[in-house]
Structure formats: C-alpha cells, structure tokens
Amino acid sequence: MDIAKQMQMQEIALFKGISDDARKVLSEQARRRTYRPGEMILGETDAVRAFYVVLTGQVKLYKSSPEGKEQTVSLLGEGEPFGLCTAFAVEPFPVNVMALEDSMILSIPGPVIEAVAGKEPALLLNVIQILSRRFKESMSLIESLSLKEIPQRLATFLVHALKKARGDRLVLTITQRELAKILGSTPEALSRAIRRMSNEGILESGGRTITVLDRNALKLLSEGE
C-alpha cells in the first residue's frame, strides 16, 4: 500500500468525505507521471477512459483551430481534477491538456472511478459540485469573449483572481502571452489594456506582479461601467 499516495489523495477536494476503504482502492489503482513544461498530457480527440488530478504544477486546457489559433479554456493547479467527462465512458477528449511547468499528474482508470462512485455518494456529490462550478466558469468565459472588450475581460479575470488572493497583490503564474490566450486577445492588445488601467489608477503592473489599487473601479470596469 502506497501511504504517500493515500496521504496525497486525502488533500484532494474531489475525494473529501469518501471512506478510507474507497480511498485505498483508488490509491492502489492510481498512477503518477511527471511532465515537463510544454509537454502534452492529452490531445484533443484522444480516446480515453480515465480521470486525472494535478498533484503538483500547473496545466492548461485549450482548444486549437486547424490554422493554429489557440483559446485557453482553463488553468488548473494543485489538487484540481480534469477528465471528468471521460471517466465514465470512452469518449474523445474535448480539449488539449499541456503542462505549463513541471507537473505531476495522477491518473485513475475510469472503471475504477465508476465502481467506487456506485458505493460512495460523497464522490458523486463532489463530481456534481465541480462540474457545476466549471459550467459556471465556462458561461462566464463565453460571455466575456463574446460581449466584452479586452479591458473588461482583463478586469473580469482580475476580479475572479482576487477572490483567491490574500490582499490586493497578484503574482501571475503564467506569462502575458498565456494570459492573452485566456482572454482571447493578443499580447499587444493586453499590454495596451494594462497600460490604460495603470494610467487610470486602477492597478500597477511590474513583470508578473499586478497590484490592484482601486477594487471598486476594477469591479465597475468588469461590469462594463
């Protein structure tokens, strides 16, 4: 029995509330693999039936067009799962998944997750809660990309980021180019938006550090006011 693996799984929100026996089954069947920055974890249309959790590092989920254009769908960090849609059936994976930094990924076969979920209501409830949150985030992304200009998109991103931050100082874990992809923008347009917000006294920017000076103005901008 891999005690270290079980201890890691205890810290993952998805497995909160499940029995020790269920956690033992999952840990015995789980596999860990390390990925380097820029290494593909899963490709769009890969047929898989498995479930994944980011143990360390950070990954991005993104769509790409035949012309090479990318749209980042989500960034996931430590303890966050992906592959919920392929855990219970063999389906083409809907997005690409790439490591942004050195990352360790835990994978569990879909049939194992399905067997445990049939006996553990807490696991199913956790899955529903995560899917609900992801759906809400997807709707917010669609609204932002289709209805908002670049400064508003950036303001919306920062408002959400502040909810997880301590204080008004944000240290981005991604490059400005990656942030531009999330916002459906270009690095140049993003730089102009940051410069404008800095000139208006909403924030200060230096490297990957953004300090919000006026939360109220930031919120109003995110709402289009």
Rank of each mutant, 00 (worst) to 15 (best):
A30I: 00
V54I: 13
G43M: 08
E78N: 10
K63G: 05
R33Q: 15
M9K: 09
K60N: 06
I41E: 11
F51M: 14
E39D: 12
G68W: 03
K5N: 11
T72M: 10
Y62S: 05
L61A: 13
T72K: 01
E78P: 00
L26D: 01
Q6R: 15
L26R: 08
D21K: 11
K60L: 02
V53S: 02
I41K: 01
R36T: 07
L55H: 09
A30Y: 00
G77P: 05
F15Q: 08
V59T: 08
A13W: 09
V48T: 13
G77H: 04
M7H: 13
A13E: 12
L75E: 07
V53E: 01
G43N: 12
L61P: 03
I12R: 05
V53T: 11
R33T: 13
E67H: 07
K24P: 00
Q6M: 15
K69M: 08
M1T: 13
M9S: 07
A22F: 01
E28R: 12
V48N: 09
I12G: 06
D21L: 10
G17F: 12
A30K: 02
L76Q: 11
V59Y: 04
K69Y: 06
G38T: 05
L75S: 05
L14A: 09
S74Q: 12
L84Q: 12
Y35T: 04
V73D: 07
G38E: 03
E80H: 02
P37Y: 06
L75H: 10
E80I: 02
S27G: 11
P66C: 05
R49P: 03
V53G: 01
V54W: 03
G38D: 05
R23A: 10
G68Q: 08
E28C: 06
E39A: 14
E44A: 11
V25D: 06
G57W: 00
I3L: 12
R32Y: 06
Q58W: 00
I41S: 06
R23F: 02
Q10H: 13
M7W: 06
Y52P: 00
A47Y: 01
E67P: 00
Y35F: 15
E28P: 01
M1N: 11
L14D: 04
E78L: 00
V54L: 09
E70M: 12
T45M: 12
A50Q: 14
I18E: 05
A47S: 12
K60M: 11
G68T: 07
R49M: 14
E44K: 15
F82G: 03
S64Q: 14
V59W: 05
E28Q: 14
D21G: 07
K24E: 14
E44L: 09
I3N: 08
S27Y: 04
G43P: 00
E67K: 13
Q10C: 10
P81E: 03
A47M: 14
R31P: 03
R23T: 08
P66N: 05
T56K: 08
M40C: 02
Q10K: 15
V73Q: 13
G57H: 00
T34W: 02
V54P: 05
